[in-house]
Design a protein around this nucleic acid. Structure first.
Lengths: 235, 235
DNA sequence: TAGCCCATGTAATGAGTTACATGATTCA
DNA sequence: TGAATCATGTAACTCATTACATGGGCTA
């Protein structure tokens, strides 16, 4: 239900074809949304049938024809009503965090590798955002104009960048934590065997490689910083 | 494709019914995933047919019967293969950021209200996580055991908490930014009219309430901190 | 000449949500 | 007595992804 508002929102400022909209979803809007052309085209046709947008065929030299869409008054009304509605509860879906949560099932070496790979993934997203914001920044300064749309879109870009920076930092910190607690995984070659016996673990039988908490308490407290309220402890 | 691994991952440590799994998705696992019972039940049946899990009916006193699932060897193999596969590229879907991006279409007063409401939403998530981590922290200290699973799940919880803290901070900063740039929206009553003319905007016709950038440059630079590389400027 | 960019789609499949259906116990 | 919790599901629908289809122009 949100894709259509992403389209209406974009068309509220610029006329565009499905292909143009996809380009935007891959560029600035990738901070908060992603979509395939095969979803955008049918949605555009649906929006036109509902008279929220209208289209015009524009011939191009040396390129295929374009179907350029324009938002209608009704479309603007729908967009505004959506914008004024109370915000939805955030619905988390983070595949990488899910994997991390279950990484006790694979050897430590693999855990560290995955964290490093993911850090790179996030670094690339950040680099892309930095580029986008740099270009926009120069353009704003050059044209010397500020508008509400520019303000809000840069605010969103800031949020995106902060998110990537913090995710990268978390990867680094977690790599350090895992390295400091390597022994919890036991020998790498034994990992397969360990897992086979893990099903008895819920009955409070200690895991072969479990250690007493006090051994790692300091590492833990440092990792968490002030996120934990550690009452009854003298430090 | 990830829900099934969320289920397998959970069952890799504890035997559980569909209802139990749902409870977990609403609790600790809500940091990175959410799912409905009407999706979990059919998935469990599918997993059983594929022999990745097996079930046993457990009668209960004063409560309906439970269908308790156990992961099979084949299920563990599938889980491990998924965990060892290279991480997927993150797929962003943040409805609130999408709305924020297009908030030039509604009055400033409404923009500020929405940012405040969303901040509260995130604050509630944070409070819930704090509670969860506090309970786990006490339990770890009491039992005095540390295992790889505990390590990784707390790392994920940390990430979740950081995310909420930073989102809240971003809301606050953005509220301040919007307040400082209120005039970009013009009079609230005029908002409807403004939007009607916005379609001519792509032709570089300045927006009625546009101001020169230099007027807000300092506010902007403060908002961004060191996120922008502002070359050729003396500060 | 192979592969990418432009441009628009359809079809099949998979994932996710909302509504409906049932029925016992427990708590206010 | 009504609402919430426990417990398992089906059906209808919407949303999202992957694969397929077409075809001209540009670039290495």
């Amino acid at each position: 239900m949100s894709l259509r508002y992403g389209i209406l929102g974009f068309l509220s400022k610029w006329e565009a074809s499905g292909y143009d909209i996809k380009r935007e979803f891959d560029d600035v809007m990738s901070v908060f949304w992603h979509s395939h052309l095969s979803q955008i085209y049918p949605e555009l046709n649906k929006l036109e049938k509902e008279e929220l947008i209208s289209s015009e065929l524009v011939p191009q030299a040396g390129k295929p024809d374009k179907k350029v869409y324009t938002i209608t008054r009704k479309g603007r009304e729908w967009l505004m009503n959506w914008l004024l509605a109370p915000p939805e509860a955030p619905k988390m879906k983070d595949v990488f965090l899910m994997q991390t949560f279950f990484m006790d099932n694979i050897p430590v070496g693999e855990v560290l590798l995955k964290l490093q790979m993911y850090k790179k993934e996030r670094q690339q997203r950040l680099d892309k955002m930095r580029e986008i914001i740099q270009i926009r920044w120069e353009s704003i300064k050059e044209r010397n104009v500020m508008k509400a749309r520019i303000l809000m879109s840069t605010a969103v870009l800031k949020r995106g960048m902060e998110q990537e920076i913090q995710y990268i930092k978390w990867c680094e910190e977690t790599i350090r934590l895992v390295e400091a607690c390597k022994n919890l995984w036991g020998k790498e070659e034994a990992a397969q065997t360990q897992n086979t016996y893990a099903e008895t673990e819920h009955a409070e039988v200690p895991f072969p490689t479990a250690v007493s908490f006090s051994e790692v308490e300091d590492i833990f407290l440092e990792y968490f910083g002030d996120l934990i309220d550690d009452k009854g402890r003298n430090r």
